[in-house]
C-alpha cells in the first residue's frame, strides 16, 4: 500500500488525479463560480474542508455503515459539514457567501466528495483518507484558483482584485468573466495539462500512474457504484 503514504496522497490529489483537469469532476462549480481568483479560492477551500472532514468521518465509520445504505449515510455526513461551512462562510465572509450563492449548499452533491468517499475513504484507514481529502481538495482549489485568476486577468485586468493590467493599456475582454469564458479557459488549461502529461510520458517520467480500470481511477468510472472493488484492490496491490 505504498500509495497510502501521506505525500503520495497529496501528490495524487494535486497532480495525478487532479479532480478538475484530469478527472473532469465537479464541473458545475468549476465553471460557475470561477469569475475571479478569490471566488475560485473560496469555493476550493470550502470544498477542501468538507472533503477532508467527510473523508475522515466516513473512514472512521467505514466498518459501521452497512453497504446497502452507504450512499444516504455518506450524504448525511457530507451535508452536515456543508451546513457548517455554509454558516461559517455566511458569518465571517459575507461577500464570498454572496458571490458563491447556491454553489455552497451544492457542495453536498459535488461528485468529487462522493467520489472520494465511495472510492477511497470507505475502504481505507483514517490517516490516508484524511490526507486524500486534503490532497484532492487542494488539487480542486489550485485548479479553481488558476481558472479564476486567468478569467479575472483577461476579463477585468485584475488578479485577486489587484490591478495588473491598467485600463489605459488593456481593454478587458468581458466574455471571460461571463459563462462562455469559463469553457474557453477550462478547455485551454486541460489541453495544456494534456500536453505536459504527454511530454512527461515521452521523457519516461509518466505523470499518471498506470491504473487498472480506467485511466481516471474509480471516481471517474461510471461503474464505481456497482464495482466490487476487486480491480481497484488489484491496482493498489500492483503498485
Amino acid at each position: 500500500m505504498s500509495d497510502n503514504r501521506i505525500g503520495e496522497r497529496l501528490k495524487n490529489g494535486l497532480l495525478i488525479e487532479n479532480p478538475t483537469f484530469v478527472m473532469m469532476l465537479g464541473m458545475c462549480p468549476t465553471l460557475a463560480v470561477t469569475t475571479s481568483g478569490i471566488n475560485g479560492l473560496g469555493m476550493g477551500l470550502s470544498t477542501t474542508i468538507v472533503l477532508t472532514m467527510s473523508n475522515l468521518i466516513i473512514s472512521l465509520l467505514r466498518n459501521v455503515i452497512p453497504d446497502r445504505v452507504r450512499m444516504p449515510a455518506f450524504i448525511v455526513v457530507v451535508a452536515s459539514f456543508v451546513t457548517i461551512v455554509q454558516f461559517l462562510v455566511q458569518g465571517f465572509v459575507p461577500s464570498l457567501y454572496a458571490a458563491l450563492g447556491i454553489y455552497i449548499p451544492l457542495i453536498v452533491v459535488n461528485c468529487i466528495i462522493l467520489g472520494r468517499a465511495e472510492s477511497f475513504a470507505s475502504k481505507n484507514p483514517i490517516i490516508p483518507s484524511t490526507f486524500d481529502g486534503i490532497g484532492m481538495g487542494l488539487g480542486f482549489t489550485c485548479s479553481l484558483t488558476v481558472i479564476g485568476c486567468v478569467r479575472e486577468l483577461l476579463g477585468s485586468g485584475k488578479i485577486f482584485n489587484m490591478v495588473i493590467l491598467p485600463s489605459d493599456i488593456y481593454t478587458p475582454i468581458t466574455i471571460f468573466v461571463l459563462a462562455p469564458g469559463a469553457f474557453f479557459v477550462l478547455s485551454v488549461l486541460v489541453a495544456v495539462m494534456n500536453v505536459v502529461r504527454k511530454k512527461m510520458d515521452a521523457k519516461g517520467k509518466p505523470l499518471a500512474a498506470p491504473v487498472g480500470c480506467l485511466a481516471d481511477g474509480c471516481a471517474g468510472c461510471s461503474m464505481a457504484n456497482s464495482c466490487t472493488g476487486k480491480l481497484t484492490a488489484d491496482k493498489k496491490g500492483g503498485e
Partner: peptide, 10 residues
C-alpha cells in the same frame, strides 16, 4: 458575437 459580448461598447 465573441466581440459583441466582449466589447459591447466598441
Amino acid at each position: 458575437c465573441f466581440l459583441m459580448i466582449s466589447f459591447t461598447g466598441a
